[in-house]
Design a protein around this nucleic acid. Sequence first.
DNA 1: CCTCTTTCCCGTACGTTGTACTGAAACTAG
DNA 2: CTAGTTTCAGTACAACGTACGGGAAAGAGG
Lengths: 210, 210
Amino acid sequence: MPRGRPPAHTRPQVVAAAIAVADAEGLDALTMRRLAAELGAGVMSLYTYVRDKEELLDLMVEQVGEFDQALGGDDLLGLVRWQRALMLRHPWMPAALPNRQLGGPNMLGYLERGLVALERTGLPGPAKMEILALLTGFVASYVSNELAQARAGVTDSQRVQEHVARLRVAVASGAYPQLARVMSEGATAPPPSFEAIAARMIAGLVGGRP
Amino acid sequence: MPRGRPPAHTRPQVVAAAIAVADAEGLDALTMRRLAAELGAGVMSLYTYVRDKEELLDLMVEQVGEFDQALGGDDLLGLVRWQRALMLRHPWMPAALPNRQLGGPNMLGYLERGLVALERTGLPGPAKMEILALLTGFVASYVSNELAQARAGVTDSQRVQEHVARLRVAVASGAYPQLARVMSEGATAPPPSFEAIAARMIAGLVGGRP
DNA sequence: CCTCTTTCCCGTACGTTGTACTGAAACTAG
DNA sequence: CTAGTTTCAGTACAACGTACGGGAAAGAGG
């Protein structure tokens, strides 16, 4: 039987609250004070459940990554699809992923699935790991761009305005003819679909192997 | 003739000092106070040259990215090689790149070169842009892993130790057979070379196009 | 019942960060 | 000289992560 004062919350609850804040208001809004307020707790109480903020982020990534069902099957394209869905639902993920410790069962399970999918390539182990890491990086990049473009439409940030103005000036100077052409084409052609790019990417990375 | 008190430094000097600090001690060590101390200036004097820290980082990326010579030519593989060399020389770049405004002549020049290299594919403009962004993301991922592995050998961080220990326990549980195999293989096989992966990556992304 | 031990709660406080404010300082123009 | 303009930099503040330590709440042992 557990002795001592019983905890007012649980670790998954704390992590879930953190995820909720980050989902709704972004990573920057996720401060220890904000999280404590969300839970109706004192700031320092959080450190009962989490060693520090870094560990909290580790746990967020792990907890958000539970694949309850097999979305899209066990092939690489399915895994990559699943990652993209995850990142679109949790826009803070691309920024939070780099340099993080992924030791939980969800992330290890994901890794295991990726290795299974790569088994028939006959590649050496380190190459498989590298490919999986690169695929994750690819999805993060893609979704990052995707989210940035979605935001660009509604933004009124002075920063972005100035940046676009500088771009126009530079392009108008004539020094960047290719860029000028692309910008004048503008939105006539839609960007390629995730499916298409991901498929080509995977083909390229495991390409040449049966 | 310029009126008023003459500046004690120049913007490129300030940016260069910032790059030097980040190169030597990492992005975290680059604080406004540290940078001011490096220049022998007051902290707030920096804000004469730079609107805020965000702009300083923009300028660092831009200034570090001057291609004085044409390394590797104008094809995509050459551009990617150049990016990797840059990031290896400035290990803070992979972390600093995401979500940054790249409006300077160096970065626009790089973009223009990439578009030229992609011209013969006949792809629509947005697709070209997407491919270039993804290639940059790929290099950042790759170099990030590269640097992390180089650091892993000499690290004594308690965090990493614990992480490895947790990994061992998880793998020993038998729940991840593929992962177990890869870890037991260990370092027998060297990871694939950057050249090989980059080439396959490029082939995949522009693949199917003449 | 009371007391001990264990555990969690959380107010206070410290060091570090980016940067707003303000006035002094250094220069040119007249 | 004075007036005008620009940069320099000390002080100060809000927000952050978190170390510290005392108080509070529970079960265990008497």
